[in-house]
Simulated scan of single mutants.
Amino acid sequence: MPQVTTTSLHMRSVDELRPSRATLPAGCRIERVDAITPEFSKFLYRSVGSVWNWADRLPLTRREWADIITRPGSETWVLWTNGAPAGYLELAGSPEGVVEIVYFGLFPEQLGRGFGGLLLAEGTTRAWDLHTRWQGFAPVHRVWVHTCSLDGPAALANYRARGFEVFAVEEADQAVVDASTGWWPEA
C-alpha cells in the first residue's frame, strides 16, 4: 500500500480569500445545481475523480448518495463551458457556520486552462455566503478542505493561492482503488 499524505486547510475569514487572476471566458459560467440528482452528482464525481482514484462514494447505494447531496447545507456548483460541464465543487455546510469543500475538481480535458483557480475562488465565495441560502444556519466562520498526495499536482498550490492555510498534515498507508470501476451497488 502506498503512503498517502492528507493535508487539511482552512480559512477563518472571507477577507482571507484571494481571487483568481484569470477571468471566466465567454461561454463559461459557474452555477448552483438546485435540484441535483444522484445520477448527475455521480457523473460529476466520476468524471473528475476517476483520474485521481476517488472511490469513497462508489460503494454507496443511490439512496445513500441522495441522502448526502440533498441534506440541508449541501450544494453543488458546476463550471459550464459552452453548455457542457467542465468541473464542479460540492459544499457541505453545517448550521453551526462551518462549511467543508467536500469535492472540487475539473474534468481531465479542462486541466491547465486556468479554470481551477476560478472555480475554487467562486466556490469558496459561495461557501462563505452559504448561510444566506439556508434557513436556520449561522453565519459562516470557517471554510475548510482537505487534499491528498493522490490528487492533482496543482491542488495544494491552488488552495494556498486562494488563501487557505494548512492546519493538519497526516500520513497513512492507504489502499488505492481503481475508481474507473463500479456502478450502483446492490441495496
Rank of each mutant, 00 (worst) to 15 (best):
A138S: 15
T132F: 00
N158T: 15
G114K: 04
W128A: 03
T147P: 06
A138P: 01
L119M: 12
G116K: 04
L150N: 11
F137E: 00
V140A: 03
G114V: 04
A157P: 02
G117H: 06
A155W: 01
W134T: 01
T147V: 06
E109A: 14
S149Y: 05
G136V: 05
L150T: 08
G116T: 05
V145P: 01
L130Q: 06
V143E: 14
Q110M: 15
V166F: 01
L130M: 11
G93Q: 12
V166R: 02
L118T: 06
Q135N: 09
F137W: 04
A127Q: 08
P108N: 12
D151N: 11
R160P: 03
V169Q: 14
F104K: 00
G116P: 07
S149C: 08
G93H: 06
G114I: 01
W128Y: 02
A121K: 00
A161D: 08
D129E: 15
L111Y: 13
P95N: 10
G123P: 09
Y103I: 03
F167M: 02
Y103D: 15
V102L: 14
G114L: 03
D151P: 06
F164M: 11
S94D: 13
P153F: 09
W134Y: 13
A92P: 00
L156K: 07
T124N: 11
E100F: 00
L150R: 14
L106H: 08
L120Q: 13
G93C: 09
F164H: 08
T132N: 03
S94R: 13
V145S: 03
S149R: 06
H131G: 05
G136N: 05
L119S: 12
F104N: 07
Y103M: 10
P139N: 11
R126L: 07
F167W: 14
V98K: 08
V166I: 15
P153G: 09
V166W: 01
T147R: 05
F164A: 10
P153K: 12
Y103W: 12
W144M: 08
A121D: 11
L106P: 10
F115Y: 15
V145Y: 01
A92D: 15
R160N: 03
E100C: 05
G105Y: 05
S149W: 00
P108L: 07
V98S: 11
F137M: 13
V145D: 04
R162Q: 10
V98P: 00
G116D: 07
R162C: 13
L156V: 04
A161L: 01
E100M: 08
Q110Y: 09
L120H: 10
Q135S: 14
V102E: 15
G93E: 10
W128D: 04
D151L: 05
L120W: 07
E96K: 10
H131T: 04
T125L: 13
G112Q: 12
T125I: 04
N158M: 15
W128H: 02
G163E: 09
V140L: 04
A168D: 14
L119A: 10
F167V: 04
F104I: 12
E109R: 12
F167G: 03
R113E: 12
G97E: 09
T132G: 03
D129S: 14
T125M: 13
R142N: 10
F115D: 11
V145Q: 04
E100S: 06
D151T: 07
G116W: 02
G152E: 05
S94M: 10
R160F: 01
E165I: 05
H141P: 01
G163L: 08
E109G: 13
R162N: 11
P139S: 10
